[in-house]
Write a protein that binds this DNA or RNA. Structure first.
Length: 193
DNA sequence: AAAACGGGGGC
DNA sequence: GCCCCAGTTTT
C-alpha cells in the first residue's frame, strides 16, 4: 500500500480515478470503494479492459455508478495512451473530469498549486463576503487573486471542513460558528441562501 | 437554467 | 423521512 516503485508509478492514475469517483459522495465511501476497484484493477491497462458490468457491480454503493463506471473505464483507456496530463485543459478532456476534479489532480497528484473549488468553497466564499460570484469557476478566479498562494491549501481545506460540519448548505449551525464579524449570512433563516 | 445521475450514512 | 455527500454532463 505504501511506497514502492509500482505504487508510486500508479499514483496519478489512482488520484485521477479516485477523484472522479468522489463526485457527490462521502470521502469514506469513496475511499472504501476505490480501494476495492484498485485491488481488482491495479493499472490503467487493467481497468481499460474491464467489463462494464463488473465495474458497475463494484461501484454500486458509491452512487451514480453506471455513469461513473463509464467515466473511469474510458478515462483509464485514455490514460493508458496519454498518461495523466499536467494541465487543467488536458485533464478536463477526460470524461467525468470537470474543473474541480482537474484541479484536485494538479494538487494531489502533481504537487502543483491550485484551488479546487467545490460547493463548500463556493458557498463559504460567498457567505463570508470574500467574493460575490455565480459559478465555482468565478470563485476560483477571484480566490487566486485574493488569497496568497502559500495559503491556498489551508484556506481551501478549511472552507471544506467548516462547510461540512458547521456552515451547511441549508441549515447553517450559526450557534456553534466561531465567525462573528464578516459573515453576510449570520442569523439568516435556513430557507435563505 | 434546470434536470439527470443514486446508493448510503446521519439524525 | 429528509438532508446531504470535496460534481459533471446533458437537455
Amino acid at each position: 500500500m505504501l511506497g514502492g516503485w509500482q505504487a508510486r508509478r500508479e499514483r496519478p492514475y489512482r488520484v485521477l480515478i479516485g477523484t472522479i469517483l468522489s463526485a457527490r459522495t462521502r470521502d469514506e465511501t469513496t475511499d472504501r470503494i476505490s480501494a476495492l476497484l484498485f485491488k481488482r484493477y491495479p493499472t490503467p491497462r487493467a481497468l481499460a479492459r474491464a467489463g462494464r458490468r463488473e465495474v458497475e457491480r463494484i461501484l454500486k454503493p458509491i452512487g451514480f455508478y453506471r455513469t461513473k463506471a463509464k467515466y473511469v473505464t474510458e478515462t483509464a483507456a485514455m490514460v493508458e495512451k496519454l498518461g495523466v496530463p499536467r494541465t487543467i485543459e488536458g485533464l478536463m478532456e477526460f470524461p467525468g473530469v470537470g474543473r474541480k476534479v482537474a484541479n484536485c489532480v494538479l494538487v494531489y497528484a502533481h504537487g502543483q498549486e491550485a484551488i479546487p473549488v467545490d460547493t463548500h468553497v463556493h458557498r463559504l466564499s460567498n457567505r463570508l463576503g470574500w467574493v460575490r460570484t455565480k459559478t465555482p469557476e468565478q470563485t476560483e478566479r477571484a480566490l487566486v487573486r485574493l488569497v496568497p498562494r502559500r495559503l491556498w491549501p489551508l484556506v481551501n481545506e478549511a472552507f471544506v471542513a467548516h462547510g461540512k460540519k458547521t456552515c451547511r448548505p441549508r441549515g447553517p449551525k450559526c450557534a456553534e460558528c466561531p465567525v462573528e464579524r464578516g459573515c453576510r449570512k449570520r442569523g439568516v433563516r435556513p430557507a435563505a441562501r
